[in-house]
Amino acid sequence: MTKTVPAYQRIKNAILDNIHSGKWQAGEAISTEMALAEEFEVSRMTVNRALKELSEERVLERRQGSGTFVAQQQFNHTFVEVRNIAQDLKSANRDYQARVVSKRAITASMLDDEMRRKFGIDEAVVPSNSKAANAKNVDSYSIDSNTDSTEAAVLYEVKIIHFADGQPIQFEERWVDATKVPEFIEQDFSVVNTSDYLIAKSPLERGNYTIRALAAPDEIANALQIAPQSPTLVLRRQTYSAGRVLTFVKMWHAGDRYQFSGKL
């Protein structure tokens, strides 16, 4: 079942599309509230909500008496460059494929301590009128059947295997703030790259990562088609938008198939 996208979210998506397509450049004024209200056939209050949220996310800058402008900072040194395994493999003339293992919505009561700390979520359940509220069992994702269906999703979780020339090369475990990117879980990630989608919808301002060598637990070993406890390289990365963690990801790589390199 397809969920109706709220009007303010449609306006946000359209503004982001115009920015990322280059129609509205950094520092340029965007359409006025009145023009946007007429274009989308909504009230100025609805437009104001969209502009307010994008301003809080540092995508737009509102200037009293002058209008609303595309913020400069998201296009300068604060913008996070995130490597895309699909592009890397294709640029190396290798056949790339992705297979989605699972997708699910996670409520506050389902979180472990690590995820609470990562995303700054306390014990309180997010109210059911939030953007990601009332997620129910559908073909593309689900909430644990033991959880109250009126409890809002606070995170989305996806697990994806990335293949190079038919061989699994990376197992991706990703968690995303469901309240900031409510349509994330509905995407087909065998076609859409997770990082590309997040950057397009909520520009990343900073991030941090670690790379460790770990023995593969059973789930990871099965996904990568290697023996349990085989050596793997694990990249753990969290990226921020509007001052908050937007996504946390673990990327597992078979140690004998993958290496990290760069230029100094």
Results as ranks from 00 to 15, higher is better:
Leu51Ile: 09
Leu111His: 00
Lys90Ser: 13
Phe163Gln: 04
Arg257Trp: 00
Arg116Cys: 07
Glu123Gly: 01
Arg104Trp: 09
Pro217Tyr: 01
Leu36Ser: 01
Ser43Arg: 08
Asn18Tyr: 07
Asn193Met: 04
Met45Gly: 14
Gly27Glu: 08
Lys52Asn: 10
Gly22Tyr: 02
Lys201Glu: 04
Ser55Lys: 14
Arg206Asp: 13
Asp139His: 08
Arg236Ala: 15
Asn76Cys: 03
Leu16Ala: 03
Thr194Tyr: 04
Ala86Val: 03
Pro228Cys: 00
Arg206Leu: 08
Met45Thr: 14
Phe171Ser: 09
Asp148Phe: 11
Gln170Asp: 05
Ser109Ala: 12
Asn146Phe: 05
Asp188Gln: 04
Asp113Tyr: 01
Ala26Asp: 03
Asp256Pro: 10
Glu157Val: 06
Lys90Cys: 09
Ala98Trp: 02
Ile160Pro: 07
Tyr258Leu: 10
Pro127Arg: 05
Ile220Ser: 09
Gln9Asn: 08
Ser202Phe: 07
Gly65Asn: 06
Asn76Glu: 14
Tyr240Lys: 00
Ser202His: 12
Ile19Phe: 01
Ser43Tyr: 03
Glu41Lys: 12
Ala152Gly: 04
Glu53Thr: 03
Glu39Gly: 01
Ser21Asn: 10
Asn84Gly: 01
Glu56Asp: 12
Asn48Ser: 15
Val138Tyr: 07
Val249Asp: 01
Gln238Pro: 00
Gln73Trp: 05
Gln9Glu: 02
Thr107Asp: 06
Ala132Arg: 02
Tyr258Phe: 10
Gln187Phe: 04
Leu54Asn: 07
Pro6Ser: 03
Tyr209Ala: 10
Asp144Gly: 10
Gly262Arg: 14
Gln72Gly: 04
Met1Thr: 12
Ala71Glu: 05
Val192Ala: 03
Leu54Arg: 14
Tyr258Ile: 08
Ala92Thr: 02
Phe184Thr: 01
Leu60Lys: 12
Lys12His: 08
Glu183Met: 07
Asn48Tyr: 14
Ile161His: 02
Thr239Ala: 15
Arg99Leu: 11
Glu173Val: 14
Leu235Arg: 13
Arg63Ser: 04
Leu155His: 04
Glu61Arg: 11
Ser43Cys: 03
Ser55Ile: 01
Leu89Gly: 09
Asp122Glu: 14
Gln97Trp: 02
Gln229Thr: 13
Ser241Val: 08
Ala254Lys: 03
Ala178Val: 10
Asp122His: 06
Ile143Arg: 09
Glu173Arg: 15
Phe184Val: 07
Ala108Asp: 15
Ala221Glu: 06
Ser66Ile: 03
Ala133Leu: 03
Ser109Glu: 15
Ser128Asp: 12
Leu224Thr: 02
Glu186Cys: 08
Arg244Phe: 11
Ala86Cys: 06
Lys159Tyr: 06
Arg257Phe: 06
Leu111Cys: 08
Leu198Met: 10
Glu41Arg: 12
Gln225Gly: 04
Met45Ser: 14
Val47Met: 05
Ile143Gly: 05
Lys12Ile: 08
Ala242Phe: 08
Ala200Ser: 14
Gln25Lys: 15
Ile161Glu: 05
Ala213Gly: 12
